[in-house]
Design a protein around this nucleic acid. Sequence first.
DNA 1: ACCTGAACACCGTTCAAGT
DNA 2: ACCTGAACACCGTTCAAGT
Lengths: 188, 188
Amino acid sequence: MPAPARTSTEAVVTAARGIVERDGLDALTMQRVADEVGVRAPSLYKRVRDRADLVRLVADQVAYELADRLDAVVGSGDPHDDLRAVAGAFREFARANPASYTLLFDPRSGGMSPEARDTSVSVLLRVATDLAGPDDGLSAARLVTAWATGFVAMELAGAFQLGGDVESAWAYAVEHLVAAVAGDGAET
Amino acid sequence: MPAPARTSTEAVVTAARGIVERDGLDALTMQRVADEVGVRAPSLYKRVRDRADLVRLVADQVAYELADRLDAVVGSGDPHDDLRAVAGAFREFARANPASYTLLFDPRSGGMSPEARDTSVSVLLRVATDLAGPDDGLSAARLVTAWATGFVAMELAGAFQLGGDVESAWAYAVEHLVAAVAGDGAET
DNA sequence: ACCTGAACACCGTTCAAGT
DNA sequence: ACCTGAACACCGTTCAAGT
């Protein structure tokens, strides 16, 4: 009557994330996760409700990790530099974890949980508020977040194919956004 | 020996798009497409290579349609107003075709073909060049495209949950982007 | 030349049975 | 309390056989 737990939810999620990162979301199979954690597929249903639930757990793990990275690069004292740093860290994270990153903003994966989402955007909200003031902070954060999200998504999807230098497009955008957000807010 | 073609590639793609729009990409099943066009599933392989190919064809159809919509709203004479109009039309299209729209920017769907992509961004490139000048046109177009893509993706995913008014965040962004892009280009 | 039934390998998921 | 084999319904895809 013991019941030796041969794996754990954490091991299952970590294995799943590794599979997604290495071979893409379509390769995330219950069978394959089971193989990696050393168990039979049906046993996974003691850890996660179903495959969609597992995908969501992976997205959450990635979201918290991204939030940590963003948190780590702010604090220069100058909100202009903080915004540049956050944008850079965001892009770096996406490049280092392309498949996991797309999972975060893929509507088809159910996205991340609300708490994970709040955590990952709170840093940017703080920096944007420092820069744009309390009235425009939220709108400014949404502008920058939407831009960074879209830019990186397009970059990962190979959408920048009209030639030109992607690096200079990035630099152009960062500087113009910093200036636009920091400038006095057009019409209140 | 005739061989009465009981369907067509166009009918297959249209049926597929309808399914995606009504019930999501996961509901796009070869069986279900076959049912809708009145044929057995194996016959679909005379029209498309495989399911992934079918998804790409749907994405292409949607991309061309989006390009048409954007094309239709420019020409006010004022590039500022054109940019506002294009952004608005972009958002409207996404709201009217949420599932098809996400298909366009979903890396997992293989995205659209290069020609479809070029067509859909050419309008924005033209407007951005009018506004930012030939040197910065491409970077400006990429800034606006990335922002609009990201904003709409987040909106469709229900990512704006920190309260505040999403409409005012949209308006704030449009005005600040128009001003930032039209202003003399920071450092050349 | 297109259509079909039958078949294959592979999914996610359930469940009764083991320990 | 967790694990397992067996089973179910459902995929995408291939292919020989029809017309």
